[in-house]
Nucleic acid binder design. Structure first.
Lengths: 223, 223
DNA sequence: TTTTAGTTAACGGAAAACCGTTATATAACA
DNA sequence: TGTTATATAACGGTTTTCCGTTAACTAAAA
């Protein structure tokens, strides 16, 4: 007896990537693409119309409603949705966030198509799957974080840190080229507090100065 | 009489995008994909082995050897190569650079696949082709640049400015989170000179501070 | 209920960035 | 042969960032 095909929905703001994934998946006879979305809005509406799929392939870097926010939406609505997250960058913090939000698969876009197949077949069984470059990153991160000051890591060892709401808010304003004073005025807090946030951001993100913060912000679509 | 197919080579560090483009092109019976490269090195070697194609589809954002550098290589070797440049970002400065280096087609990755077909069929006849979002950008840029201070624009009106070699060098080091002093030591020049360069960069790029420079550097793959 | 995470705030001193402006030398260009 | 672009350098003053450290209050979690 042959079981039903795995239904897949793809969400990515780059149509060409959707085409690419479809091209990879259509050769497999246990997988079926049942739809795609070109932005977070479309995807959320698709869910709201009570559509379903076995596996969601989700780009994290989408304008307006990001993949992250889609995951938040799903979590909030208590929708259990096996998901493979696609990302342009290898970023350990991003991976942590994504795991926190319940996604089990994570692949860097630069990785070839066949890994998506493995990822789909893993997450459908609620198993984790990390693409090759991600695995490397996790191992590297684990090593350094364990040896170095465990400033961010808590008891779990790996599932940690990330920025607070306020810190993200401050970071965004820094990335808008605003000075401490301007940020303080905008957020109705003391300049000293903003400085503290800036300091904590530099430590948490492990960069040298505001330039590092700006690059981090750019990388994580906070700009 | 039916003419020979248009041979196309694709270069992009994201395999999935190559797959996507192949998927789009393989439905066309006047176009034939004759090869692909996953980075700038591979592509340059491909050319060095005296391979040829009618149209090159070139991603600008590749690690190590970028698309820009590939264009420089082709120009330097006097290889006339009709090229469609792919970019993740809509950036007017980038477009200008690319035009300077001889590419005639320019498409943002977010644009759907069919535009690539138009682009290929344009550049093969040495005609320019700009994707929809790029056209918008050019129009917008033209309007503001004309109205506002023409600080960067020279006689040509559109094909202008850009940073000097030295400025780019300094900018890259700033984006590496180095201080003025460190940069000065690395380049064997005075701190004062580095400050002058930083100042000029801020003015030229029209940003407020090093954060703006960092973001510009990130956007233009100088990081 | 203690513990932890987050937000707020302060302070003093060092370092770096920012600003305007001027100036010299060189190489390329018209 | 001027003109222009580029790279170099200096200077004084202002503003901002950076660093370490401490601490109080709150809300949520263990």
């Amino acid at each position: 007896m042959k079981s039903r095909k795995i239904s897949v929905h793809i969400a990515d703001d780059h149509k060409i990537i959707i085409d690419g994934i479809i091209a990879v998946l259509e050769d497999e006879d246990d997988i079926q693409v049942v739809g795609y979305s070109c932005n977070g809005n479309e995807l959320i509406n698709w869910f709201k119309e009570d559509n379903k799929c076995d596996v969601l392939i989700l780009d994290i870097n989408m304008p307006e409603i990001s993949g992250m926010e889609v995951l938040k939406f799903l979590k909030q609505k208590n929708i259990f949705q096996p998901t493979v997250v696609l990302s342009s960058y290898d970023d350990i913090k991003l991976i942590k966030e994504v795991i926190k939000l319940g996604a089990k698969g994570f692949i860097a876009k630069k990785c070839a198509g066949k890994h998506i197949l493995n990822a789909i077949r893993s997450v459908i069984h609620d198993e984790e799957y990390f693409g090759p470059s991600i695995q490397e990153l996790i191992v590297k991160n684990f090593a350094t974080k364990t040896v170095l000051n465990g400033n961010n890591t808590n008891q779990d060892g790996i599932l940690t840190s990330s920025l607070t709401e306020r810190e993200i808010q401050v970071l965004k304003l820094i990335a808008k080229q605003k000075s401490t004073k301007e940020i303080a005025e905008e957020l109705f807090i003391s300049s000293n507090t903003v400085e503290t946030h800036r300091k904590n951001l530099i430590k948490k993100i492990n960069v040298k100065n505001v330039v590092g913060l700006a690059l981090y912000a750019a990388k994580n679509n906070l700009v």
